[in-house]
């Protein structure tokens, strides 16, 4: 059953047609991998799906309802976008992991957060670590669990393993595999040869279109 359908989606920015006419159907629990050269529209496609950009034409249907009919913050909690080089905010890791609770008007659940920290091999003491003291890999792991503390329906991963150290990359890839096994719908953009080799459902993009 399709959880996400894009019909004749186009996107024009600064008088440049980045995506001319794209159709895509993603089944629930699918793990879709998208690759393609730089500037082929991969990140733009993820941003359109995440409602961080609006299609110039066409429709995006999520769970049977048009994207524009959703309360957008609620939609973004369901269709969660994880950035390639995430920015952490506030002073500490806690500030970042508290944020998903804050936007849902819920009190911080340390037990729940600790479980997620363990999933990405970070100790609970990390909560009070200053964000300026984190390595790139640690930042990415914190950013990833920021998206996962309240599990979304679809997780969009925009080259999240690019530029990570070997250990962080393995931890993040393991987590992604585990999420896929747990039936989370995943759409990832990657150039990583290992990730492309094991991809079950691979799409290639070029000039804003899907070529295979």
């Amino acid at each position: 059953m399709a959880i996400l359908t894009l019909t004749h989606v186009s996107y024009l920015a600064n008088q440049q047609l980045i995506i001319p006419d794209l159709n895509l159907t993603v089944a629930a629990n699918d793990f879709l991998t998208i690759t393609g050269p730089s500037g082929s529209g991969k990140s733009t496609l993820l941003k359109l799906i995440a409602s961080l950009a609006t299609p110039s034409s066409g429709e995006i249907i999520f769970a049977g309802k048009n994207q524009r009919d959703y309360n957008l913050p609620k939609y973004r909690q369901q269709v969660s976008y994880c950035f390639q080089q995430p920015t952490l905010f506030g002073q500490t890791v806690r500030d970042n992991l508290q944020f998903p609770f804050q936007i849902r008007n819920q009190t911080f659940d340390q037990g729940r957060v600790t479980n997620y920290l363990e999933l990405v091999d970070l100790p609970v003491a990390f909560l009070d670590k200053k964000i300026t003291d984190l390595s790139g890999g640690e930042r990415q792991r914190v950013a990833l669990i920021r998206n996962l503390i309240f599990p979304p329906t679809i997780l969009l991963l925009d080259e999240v393993t690019a530029g990570l150290d070997r250990r962080s990359k393995e931890i993040v890839q393991d987590l992604i595999r585990q999420l896929s096994k747990n039936k989370l719908t995943l759409i990832q953009v990657t150039h990583d040869s290992d990730e492309l080799r094991i991809a079950e459902n691979l799409l290639q993009m070029q000039a804003g279109g899907i070529i295979k």
Binding site: L52, K74, Y75, R76, Q77, C82, T87, F99, I103
Partner: peptide
Amino acid sequence: RQQILEKLALGAEIKTASLP
């Protein structure tokens, strides 16, 4: 800009994202 984008992507209202 990037920080606000991240907050929006996490599902924050524009006011919450802009508050700091």
